[in-house]
Design a protein around this nucleic acid. Structure first.
Length: 465
RNA sequence: GGCGGCGUGGCCGAGUGGUUUAGGCAGGGGCCUGCAAAGCCCCGUACGUCGGUUCGAUUCCGACCGCCGCCUCCA
């Protein structure tokens, strides 16, 4: 079984399933008030890979990831742009899914919206209120964290030590500095819903509790997100569940940061920290490879260099795909899901698959998994060079299967060739046949000038983009 | 102030108490090729500093230096 780091216990331990054969996971989704950034892309990729690996291992996965479509940031953005909150949320949610699709991130099984759950959230807040754990202030309803057992579990430090450095606003009516809003009273012009405390909107930390419990049930298996969500967001989700005496996530997993050229990320690189922008200016698969190349809990550096480096790694995989005419298994699979599970893959090259599974099960060691895949690439070429075609084909197809398990698409196609370029390629073959190499080289230069990469294959000139 | 993480060869990035290497990219040499490209083979003898434990540490312990993050909305 997959062993993953669990933030609550600070250990790597097996993911224990509530229902055998069935994984229930909740990953905190975006607040849709702006374009997704690189950090969004990383968490989405990390948990996509966890999901795909579990699928590869033959498990059913119910993957719930929310969209926060009401929140302070959206309100601020809408006001600044003279639009409604709904318009802002709608626009950026579209941009979000565009980016996810480009990254090859599987759509969640369910992607609930906060605004669809307001009534349930009011019910939850009322219950917290009735239990005396939440209290009303001038601007909302707060949960008193001092009444929650084990508060500070995910912050990885006791409540007392949190207090020392806490910044407490002087005007705060809060009973404890870490008390958080479960309901925010609306100011004039803000979107609002009715509640026993007057018109308002739910606090951010409330939506995930309600939606996770509704869509996955108590005691679901895995809750994930970026490292920064551990505290206070996940801590506060958990606090509400504990206050209500409901079983919540069994396992908490958080991924590390994205760093962009040190501290001056956006300054020197323009919009480079926008995921949308990165996806436009590089092969979208490169970001997946870049993310997979380091451990999910380590910080990663995203620079023009590391992205270019990843693109070259991709080229090596694609070259194998071309040589062996490997199918892009993801393109053929319905919904981009892994089609070949572990059992089927076993037939390709059992030892390699077992090694892959072993390293992946060890806290998602994707760098190790990639190392194994690249070794298979070399072995496939060697086998083919030495004429062991069957073995070579098996090795190459193993590469395809394992790449698919990681969500990495392989490209064997060479791109659409226009008639003029095809003509040049043919002319070059004719020149070469007549041993007019000067002419052949001229034609190659011309093709290169048109943006093609030119290779001589067994059947003549092959051009590709 | 409290807490946590990191520091590996030109770059990215794993890993381990010693004997055999991660892997990728770049670079050098060779094979193949009309020349290239792709591919294959070979090469660099790395582990922040100072101590300690040990027969032996990059890997364990301690101190120190440096970098980063969290404690506040944040993936």
């Amino acid at each position: 079984m997959l062993r993953l780091h669990d933030t609550a216990t600070r250990t790597v331990r097996p993911l224990e399933l509530r229902d055998p054969g069935q994984v229930s996971m909740y990953v905190c989704g975006p607040t849709v008030y702006d374009l997704p950034h690189l950090g969004h892309g990383r968490y989405a990729l990390v948990f996509d890979v966890i999901r795909r690996f579990l699928l590869f291992c033959g498990l059913d996965v119910r993957y719930v990831s929310n969209v926060t479509d009401v929140d302070d940031n959206i309100i601020t953005r809408a006001a600044a742009q003279g639009r409604t909150e709904a318009e802002v949320a709608f626009e950026f949610e579209i941009r979000w899914w565009e980016a996810m699709d480009a990254l090859g991130v599987l759509r969640p099984t369910v992607a609930p919206h906060a605004t669809e759950y307001v009534a349930d959230m009011v019910t939850l807040v009322a219950e917290l209120f009735d239990r005396g754990i939440a209290y009303e202030t001038a601007d909302g309803v707060y949960l008193n964290v001092e009444q929650v057992d084990g508060y500070g579990l995910l912050a990885l430090q006791p409540l007392e030590s949190l207090r020392i450095g806490a910044r407490v606003e002087a005007t705060d009516e809060k009973r404890s500095p870490f008390d958080f809003a479960v309901w925010k009273k609306a100011k004039p012009g803000e979107p609002s819903w009715d509640s026993p405390w007057g018109p308002g909107r739910p606090g951010w930390h409330t939506e995930c509790v309600v939606m996770a419990l509704d869509l996955l049930g108590e005691g679901f298996d895995l809750h994930g997100g970026g490292r920064d969500l551990a505290f206070p967001h996940h801590e506060n989700e958990r606090a509400q569940a504990v206050a209500l005496e409901k079983g919540f996530a069994s396992h908490w997993t958080h991924n590390g940061w994205v760093e962009v050229e040190g501290e001056k990320m956006s300054k020197s690189l323009g919009n480079f920290n926008s995921l949308t922008d990165l996806l436009e200016r590089s092969d979208p698969r490169a970001y997946r490879l870049l993310v997979l190349r380091s451990h999910y809990r380590s910080p990663i550096e995203v620079t023009a260099e590391t992205v270019a480096d990843a693109e070259k790694g991709l080229e090596r995989l694609d070259a194998l795909a071309r040589r062996f005419a490997l199918d892009d298994l993801l393109a053929r699979a319905p919904g981009g899901f892994v089609v070949l599970g572990r059992d089927a893959a076993q037939q390709a090259n059992g030892a390699a698959v077992e090694r892959f599974v072993a390293v992946m099960e060890d806290d998602l060691d994707t760098p190790g998994a990639l190392a194994g895949i690249f070794e298979l690439v070399t072995r496939a070429h060697v086998s083919a060079d030495e004429g062991r075609d069957e073995e070579a084909a098996a090795l190459a197809s193993t590469v395809a299967v394992l790449c698919a398990a990681l969500g990495l698409a392989l490209r064997a196609e060479t791109g659409e060739v226009d008639p003029a370029s095809a003509g040049l390629a043919q002319a070059r073959d004719e020149a070469r046949a007549g041993r007019d190499f000067a002419r052949a080289d001229e034609l190659r230069d011309e093709l290169v000038a048109r943006g093609w990469t030119v290779e001589d294959g067994p059947t003549g000139t092959v051009i590709r983009r």
